[in-house]
Every structure is written in structure tokens, then in C-alpha cells.
């Protein structure tokens, strides 16, 4: 554990809490992509199957359980409790365009051709692109609530901090996971446009709106 990984995990946790708080306090999931959230639940489910087979640490187990539970909690709030507020007209990204190629790629490029390892690889690839329906939704509506933009900033920062963690681990631990690093870089690059808008608008007290 190093400082980049820990702050990355905290940013990830903060993002999830921010989203749950936004939905709970406003009693609405308007502006949140249910498709991105479904894919995040799928990401956590397929990645953390090693909870059953492999104990790493109490921290690791606790965080994994929180991530899985919170992702299904978010789905419950979006699709059951506050279903009426779900903005499905703007959530039109086709999930199969991501899930199918990602599933194919995880069969072709992985560390080990075994069920758990393929599912882990699938989750890493899927996570890297799972935010696209959310970003697509914002580009369609042209804006995002400030709390939603804080959520996205925390969520994007998490993988960027993990890149620093991988640099650290490469130099100090001789650890290098090509699949995680490439996917993590793709994931972070997808947020760059959003980061720019967030810093130039939200940090100056304005709402996140897209240039016409």
C-alpha cells in the first residue's frame, strides 16, 4: 500500500458516497446514467469474485464488499425507489457496443486463460469504458448538476491516482500489470475533456455546461 493507491481508493469511495448522497438527498437520479451504473455493478461483481477464493487483507475485503454493496444500492435507488426520476430518454448509449467487444477482448488478451482471470480481465476492460454512457448523457443534455460533476471528478481521479501508484510500484516493488496499466490509462484519458471543463467551470463556482 502506498499513498497514491490509498488516496485513489479514498477518491473512489468518495465518488460512490457522493453519488448515493446526491440521489438520496435530492430524491432523484436525474442526470445520472443508469447504464454506467449497471456496468459498474457488473465490473465489481466480476472483479471481486476472488473474495471467495483469495484473502488479501481486511482492508481489501472490506473495500470490495463496500464497492459491491454500494453499486447494487445505487441500482436499487435508480431503478426501484426513485425510478420515476430516471432520465432514460437521455440515457441512450448502447451498452452492447461496449460489453460485447470488451468480453471478446478479455478472452483474447489476458494473463491466464481461466474463468476467474478472464472475468477479472473483463472487469478491468469494462471499467475503463463504463463511464462513456454517463459522459454521452452529459453531452446530450449539455450540462451536469454540480454534485454530479464532483462525483465524476472523484471517480476520474481515482484511476489517475492509480497510474501514479503503478509508477511507484514499478520502481519500488518491481510490480507491473500491463493489462491494468493500459486500461487505466485509457480510462483516465476518457476523463480529460471532463477534467478540463470541471477545473475551468466548477472550480470557479459555475455549473458544468458544455460549450455550444
Amino acid at each position: 500500500m502506498n499513498v497514491f493507491r490509498l488516496t485513489g481508493d479514498i477518491a473512489h469511495l468518495l465518488a460512490i458516497i457522493l453519488l448515493l448522497m446526491k440521489i438520496w438527498k435530492t430524491r432523484s437520479c436525474a442526470g445520472v446514467s443508469g447504464k454506467s451504473q449497471m456496468m459498474f455493478a457488473l465490473v465489481f461483481t466480476t472483479r471481486y469474485l476472488d473474495l471467495i477464493t483469495n484473502f488479501i487483507s481486511l482492508y481489501n475485503t472490506t473495500m470490495k464488499m463496500i464497492f459491491i454493496a454500494s453499486s447494487y444500492g445505487t441500482l436499487y435507488l435508480m431503478f426501484l425507489k426513485f425510478r420515476a426520476t430516471y432520465d432514460s430518454n437521455h440515457d441512450t448509449f448502447r451498452m452492447e457496443f461496449l460489453v460485447v467487444p470488451v468480453a471478446g477482448l478479455s478472452f483474447l488478451v489476458n494473463h491466464d486463460f481461466s474463468p476467474l482471470e478472464i472475468l477479472w480481465t473483463f472487469s478491468i476492460y469494462l471499467e475503463s469504458v463504463a463511464i462513456l454512457p454517463q459522459l454521452f448523457m452529459i453531452s446530450k443534455t449539455g450540462e451536469a448538476e454540480t454534485i454530479t460533476s464532483h462525483y465524476l471528478f472523484a471517480l476520474g481521479s481515482y484511476r489517475a491516482l492509480y497510474i501514479l501508484n503503478w509508477v511507484y510500484r514499478f520502481y519500488f516493488e518491481g510490480f507491473f500489470d500491463l493489462i491494468a496499466v493500459v486500461a487505466g490509462c485509457v480510462q483516465t484519458v476518457l476523463y480529460c475533456d471532463f477534467f478540463y471543463l470541471y477545473i475551468t467551470k466548477v472550480w470557479k463556482g459555475k455549473k458544468l455546461t458544455l460549450p455550444a
Binding site: D9, I56, H111, E117, W120, G174, F176
Partner: peptide, 10 residues
């Protein structure tokens, strides 16, 4: 180093 398959990261 060989590719890691005991995934300790989240």
C-alpha cells in the same frame, strides 16, 4: 517480472 494474477488492488 511475471504477470500478477493474485490481484491485490481494488
Amino acid at each position: 517480472p511475471p504477470p500478477p494474477t493474485d490481484h491485490d488492488e481494488l
